[in-house]
Nucleic acid binder design. Structure first.
Lengths: 243, 243
DNA sequence: CTGACCCTAACGCTGCGTGACGGTTT
DNA sequence: AAAACCGTCACGCAGCGTTAGGGTCA
């Protein structure tokens, strides 16, 4: 009548492993139906059904604790929450794909420098040129040489500026406030100081601001999408007022 | 001249933590430029640039060992490989999103049973009906009752059939071969035995085969996309020959 | 006697976060 | 004398895979 199976048997039936079953038992997610005098675990048909539910939910990407809540009958919005998480994950991966593709294309065209590092240097120029081809190729060479020759002090200041941007963004400051506007001014100042950069203009500055958000590699410098958005807001406001 | 920074300072400059820097040092990815007599770690501008590269690549989703290969100058196709992996990940998540959405919709319509478990029972019918509305609502009720009343022996046979499918698929058998065709016959036989199922036809059988591949939840039963594809091939061939 | 199974530990993997405890101060 | 930093352990996390060592036999 009441069929029951050993741990290996039920594992095969459901398409998993005995190790996983012991784990589910250990964390209380799926205790064996019965435990023999010799310590062997046995499972019945009800356990099989429960196991199939568990495996199904696991295939949807849910964590074991979330699965535990669901199979326990709690009607918390586990699935809806999980759906939002999945969508965020997909978006993140999409952005990574775009970035890797861009990097690979740049490498193919033998632009190793701008491809992977120095996103705080002249590369604004180089990338901008790549996107809109408004500024000539010699700008690239000039910026390249400048960065290579830059001394530690310059590099420190650049990194520090990026660091200050991240601090301001995570502190929740107002992008239009005095402090953020001062950061935007510093951003403009060092950009201006880079040889090979086109003459500073409202359009150029705003274009760079957009670029920081659009390109994952620049965004990373400013603390990701959120940070980059903050930088963009501050830079655009600065451009509108002072450029 | 040669500027150098403490571990906290360089962490702030690059936008990471001192703990991460110690970790990178431990695994040899980014050793400190210099270690003071007191044991303090110090980093110079070259280390800062290297660190920025590392963080950039990390933001692309690469693992630290892969990053190590890249910054070491090996020109193995790390990025191209990673790109393929990213795409596969995105596809997987896309399928999970679809499945979760389907499940949520089913739950809203109060179809808790078919939503989460028993993908080996009558649910073929119910889902089929949901998709094409070819078979009536009473089929759902009949199948439901049947499954609830099914004894352990029936459930075992169903799970066993799924298990045998997985074995056949992972063994690399020919879907058109004798063994796979025998499995398809068993599949048809038990489907026929479920009350509430529409009369067996070539179209119905092929439709189910497609469903197994299209719906992640069914596919899981047969060992994922690969397994389900195998099942589909075998079932379609069987339908063409015998139905 | 020998497979085929079952059991209980317990480490391994990824990339650090997070204390704990105790010195140092570029 | 206290605030900040620095250092070295070392556990924790998610979900099992994988030996290792040793009984059981539905």
């Amino acid at each position: 009548m009441e069929q029951e199976w050993s741990i290996q048997q039920i594992a095969k039936l459901a398409g998993t492993t005995s190790r996983a079953l012991r784990h589910y038992g250990d964390i209380g997610l799926l205790p064996p139906t019965r435990i023999g005098a010799n310590g062997y675990r046995y499972y019945d048909a009800a356990a099989l059904v429960r196991l199939q539910r568990i495996l199904l939910l696991r295939d949807l990407g849910l964590g074991l604790t979330a699965i535990a809540r669901i199979v326990a009958g709690e009607d918390s919005p586990v699935l809806a929450t999980h759906l939002r998480w999945l969508r965020a994950e997909r978006d993140r991966i999409d952005r990574q794909i775009t970035s890797v593709q861009t990097t690979l294309r740049a490498l193919e065209r033998r632009e190793p420098l701008m491809a992977e590092d120095m996103f705080d240097g002249f590369d604004h120029t180089a990338y901008r040129q790549e996107v809109e081809q408004n500024w000539g190729a010699e700008a690239y060479a000039a910026g390249d040489a400048w960065w290579r020759g830059a001394d530690a002090e310059v590099k420190r200041r650049i990194a520090e500026l990026a660091s200050d941007w991240r601090d301001a963004a995570s502190a929740g400051l107002d992008p239009l406030g005095t402090e953020a506007q001062e950061l935007a001014r510093r951003q403009r100042d060092w950009l201006t100081s880079v040889p090979g950069t086109p003459p500073m203009s409202k359009e150029y500055f705003v274009g760079l601001a957009e670029l920081y958000v659009a390109d994952e590699r620049f965004a990373a410098t400013y603390g990701g999408l959120e940070g980059a958005s903050f930088v963009r807001a501050a830079m655009i406001a600065f451009a509108a007022t002072y450029l």
